[in-house]
Amino acid sequence: MTDQETIPNLRIVWDVGRLSEWSRLLAECGQSSLTQGFGYNQAMLTVEGWRPRLGIIELSDRPIGLVVMSERRVFKLIRVARLHRGPLLRPEARKPTVFAMVMKLIRKEYPSGPLNWTAVVPEWGAGEEAEAMMRWAGFRRDKAPGYRTLWVDLRRDEADLRARLAQKWRNALNQAERAGLSVEIDRDGKAQLPWLLEQYQKDKAAKRYRGPSPKLVIRMRTGMHKDGDILLLRAVKDGVPVAGILILGHGKAATYQIGWSDAAGRATRAHNLLLWRAVQELKRQGRHWFDLGGILPDEAPGVTAFKRGMGGEEVELVGAWR
């Protein structure tokens, strides 16, 4: 891309969008990311001190997307900013030239220098063209790993979604459906979240894997439950909970956040049942996309294989840049 290919009527309007506009644009972007939503960013502000800054992306004065930068100050002089899985564009605006120009505008607003530290992981697929666009926009590649995830397209009918499950995954689901499990659904997290977080924290400490802190999850639940963006499912066997998952909604999409299963849950394949019931529930809510929450093929091959079994589309983002 050259300077002659820039889009003169494209701009980012910072610090003016209202919450209602933020929510509307998030939904209109369809395949959105949790980290660009209001509830997540409010939780990050409260728990970790990252202040969100909303930018409305406009083309010829018409909103076509949004971007949320997170900022904090170091020694009151250095502005540290980061962007994780943005910008988000409406489907008709998802063009390479638009993405490249938006990133160039972000670079202009957040220049590189001794008093400005910026890190971005853009919501754009990996590839040589994408890397060339990032360099054109003024960014340089970081050594930090990028991000990979799997998307399940909930616009497909239920029979098609089940047919797309890997054979092994579908067999496990069939086993779970015959195992005498009951599924409890909590649509605001008030009843079951304390229980799930207790199990999750013990499991996380024992297995030493990465994941959001319970405090951050609680703050997200507080900020999102009024919008109906909390979905918690629990599997019960003979009156005893054996597995649970938490899913967070954002616009027309939702993200698998945390999960837990004990030995009985693993033996009965409860996790397969919970995720399948979650797919059904998300479809009833009118969600179009289900983000399975990231994969780490090298560090967590078992979890990655399990998520791949759901038949989603695997996506690798363009990576980390500064």
Rank of each mutant, 00 (worst) to 15 (best):
D3W: 04
Q4M: 06
E5D: 14
E5L: 13
T6R: 12
I12H: 02
W14H: 06
S33W: 08
S33H: 03
L45S: 15
V47A: 04
I57E: 11
L59T: 13
G65C: 01
V67Q: 05
V74T: 13
P87Y: 14
P87I: 13
V102D: 06
R107K: 11
E109A: 15
E109R: 15
W117N: 06
V121A: 08
P122V: 08
E123P: 02
A126Q: 11
E128Q: 15
M134F: 05
G138S: 07
R140Q: 13
T149L: 02
R156I: 06
R162S: 14
R164V: 05
W169M: 00
W169E: 00
N174W: 06
E177F: 14
R178L: 11
V183M: 05
G189T: 03
K190F: 06
P194L: 14
Y209F: 15
Y209Q: 11
P212L: 13
K215C: 01
L216N: 13
G228Y: 12
D229P: 10
R234Y: 07
G239A: 09
P241D: 05
I245P: 10
L248E: 15
K252H: 12
K252G: 01
A253D: 15
Y256N: 11
Y256T: 09
I258F: 08
W260N: 14
R269N: 10
W276C: 15
H288W: 14
F290N: 01
L292N: 01
G293M: 05
D298C: 02
P301Y: 00
T304L: 00
R308W: 01
R308M: 03
